[in-house]
Simulated assay, not measured.
Amino acid sequence: MNMITMGIEEPWFKDPGVADMFGGKADVETIEGTNIVIRIDDEILDLVELTVARFHDDGEWVWDTPDAYGWTRNINGAKEAAMKHGWSEALLRLREVVPSEVVSVLDNIARMAAAAVRN
């Protein structure tokens, strides 16, 4: 049976390479990111990317996930919000995948059982 796991495999890291996603509004030095990794066995099935940054104009922190974003007053609040929304998104993605994974495993079991009966 396939082992499905989800987790953050690395801590928040500086990520100025995604500065363009903030349209030039973010202080590049403040941009950090991490990923929630969804694996089946040892293969990466999907990533939910989480990003936080401080904006130049108002000093507020923005957080971003693939399906949501928002603002808060400090980096810890931004990371918490990104994590909360990111885990929800990861669970939704996992729900989309798990039924197909379960079906293929059950099909394999059924095929092996049928072969065993024939032999």
Rank of each mutant, 00 (worst) to 15 (best):
W12V: 04
A116N: 12
P11F: 10
G77T: 01
F55M: 11
I8P: 04
D42G: 08
R54Y: 03
T65A: 03
W12C: 09
E10I: 02
F22C: 07
V98Y: 13
N76W: 03
G7F: 10
L94M: 15
A115F: 09
D107W: 03
V105G: 05
H85L: 12
E43I: 04
A53W: 06
D57H: 06
R111Q: 13
V102K: 12
M83K: 09
M83A: 07
F55P: 00
W61G: 00
A53Y: 05
I44K: 10
D57P: 00
D20L: 10
V103A: 13
A116Q: 14
I38W: 06
I75T: 01
F55S: 01
I109Q: 12
L91Y: 13
M21N: 12
G24E: 11
G24R: 10
R39A: 03
A68Q: 07
N2T: 13
D46R: 09
T5K: 11
P66A: 06
D64R: 12
R118V: 15
T65L: 03
T5D: 10
N74E: 07
L47C: 04
G23T: 07
A81T: 01
A115S: 14
M1S: 12
M6L: 15
R93H: 08
L50H: 05
K25M: 14
N108P: 02
N74K: 03
L91D: 11
G33T: 07
V62M: 14
M3N: 13
V105T: 12
F55C: 00
E9C: 08
D42E: 15
F22L: 11
V52P: 02
D57Y: 03
L45M: 10
N35P: 00
F22E: 08
G33D: 05
D58N: 15
I36D: 06
W12E: 09
F13Y: 15
A78L: 04
D64E: 09
W71P: 00
D15T: 11
D42R: 12
M21G: 01
L106F: 06
R111N: 14
E10R: 14
V37E: 08
K79Y: 03
A90L: 10
A26S: 09
A78D: 02
R54T: 02
I36F: 08
G23R: 09
R73V: 01
G86K: 04
D107I: 10
W63Q: 00
F55G: 00
R39T: 01
T72V: 06
E101S: 06
V28P: 02
V62W: 07
E29M: 10
N108A: 13
